[in-house]
């Protein structure tokens, strides 16, 4: 193994790791605000990828109809729980209708990378807050474990629906840009630069959002203490919806970034999402910078294991969690969970 191979593996690992980092960030975010371990994150990656790939090939993505159906369900669920009807209608009926109209108009025109990516984001992102309203809001006071089981149920449903709407065939899309950058022996393809650039930009954006905006601070307050946040006038259910929306957008964007690099199937997202989890767990589900570093480490570990023992790369990546948990366990003073 010479230095060129090492450099290529590291580069590969960092590009994949950047995707895992985005996912890990959104997992930490959703967990902190809603206490939901967001298992279906991977489905959003697959949905984003396959929706973008469909638009890229000039066809109408099946997920469009899923968006409309989920919007209608979320509207019904909101009305049953006596939410404000007008606002519900705008966010869960009008919004999908507008997105549907735009997509049906634009998709056959093959409008180019930027518009396709924006459309794919607009189709997939709203599904996450709809799912929050339908599936998780009624359980907001339940224990972390019940929420986790619910998240697994949502994963089952979304994975099944993914097969229905996208079919069993994998898809791949054209790259964002066909330039590449040469650094000595190393060639950085344009897509890799896009991934790194967008990841960095998104992290900076999140930092600004949580550090300097009222909404971001409200989300942080909800994360620290739900009851306290509610007492000072923060609508915690709304915070949950926003956290889900951010996670949905990040998931979809990750998919859009990945699909030019590798063929994505309806069920590819789950394994990608789980690697985001591995990073989030390694970082203790609480630390944003920790999650990013752990995600980069997971990416590099993965690319080296696929070089040395490609059949066992998943085994190696998922087992990496064990020594970390052991280390945490040894450092940790047992305190009884008072939560039921």
């Amino acid at each position: 193994m010479d230095s060129t191979i090492v450099a290529i593996l590291v580069q590969d690992g960092i590009v994949n790791g950047a995707i895992y980092a985005l996912l890990a960030l959104s997992l930490v975010l959703v967990f902190a605000v809603t206490r939901v371990v967001f298992v279906p994150q991977g489905e959003f990656v697959a949905y984003g990828a396959l929706t973008y790939a469909a638009l890229d090939s000039g066809s109408t993505p099946g997920s469009l109809w899923l968006l409309c159906a989920l919007g209608a369900l979320a509207f019904v669920a909101g009305v049953i729980r006596r939410g404000p009807v007008l606002r519900l209608a705008v966010t869960s009926l009008v919004l999908p209708a507008v997105v549907t109209g735009l997509t049906l108009w634009l998709a056959p025109l093959k409008p180019g990378v930027a518009v396709n990516a924006a459309l794919a984001l607009a189709i997939v992102t709203p599904m996450a807050p709809y799912i929050y309203r339908i599936g998780f809001q009624p359980l907001a006071e339940a224990s972390v474990l019940v929420l986790l089981i619910a998240a697994v149920a949502v994963h089952l449903v979304l994975a099944g629906l993914g097969l229905v709407f996208f079919g069993p065939e994998g898809s791949r899309a054209t790259a964002f840009a066909d330039f590449s950058l040469s650094l000595g022996d190393l060639t950085l393809p344009g897509q890799a630069l896009w991934i790194l650039g967008l990841t960095a930009a998104l992290m900076a954006g999140l930092y600004g959002f949580f550090g300097f905006t009222l909404l971001g601070k409200a989300l942080r307050a909800t994360a620290v203490n739900r009851l306290g946040a509610r007492l000072v006038g923060i609508a915690t259910a709304q915070s949950g919806g926003i956290a889900f929306a951010l996670a949905g957008a990040i998931g979809a964007l990750s998919g859009i970034l990945v699909v030019p690099l590798t063929t994505v199937y309806y069920d590819s997202g789950f394994v990608i999402g789980l690697k985001g989890f591995t990073a989030a767990i390694i970082a203790g589900m609480g630390s944003y910078p920790g999650a990013v570093l752990a995600a980069l480490a997971v990416g590099v570990l993965e690319s080296f294991s696929s070089f040395w023992a490609s059949a066992f790369k998943e085994v190696i990546v998922f087992t990496a969690i064990i020594p970390v948990l052991l280390w945490r366990s040894l450092r940790h003073v047992t305190l009884e969970d008072e939560e039921e």
Partner: peptide
């Protein structure tokens, strides 16, 4: 259990999820 049970509840769930994946591939 020795690795996860001293930690908060969701670590067992997530740890076993990762273990389940890696055993499947193994």
């Amino acid at each position: 259990g020795a690795v996860t049970l001293r930690l908060r509840g969701h670590y067992l769930a997530l740890g076993t999820m990762a273990v389940a994946m890696s055993l499947y591939y193994l």
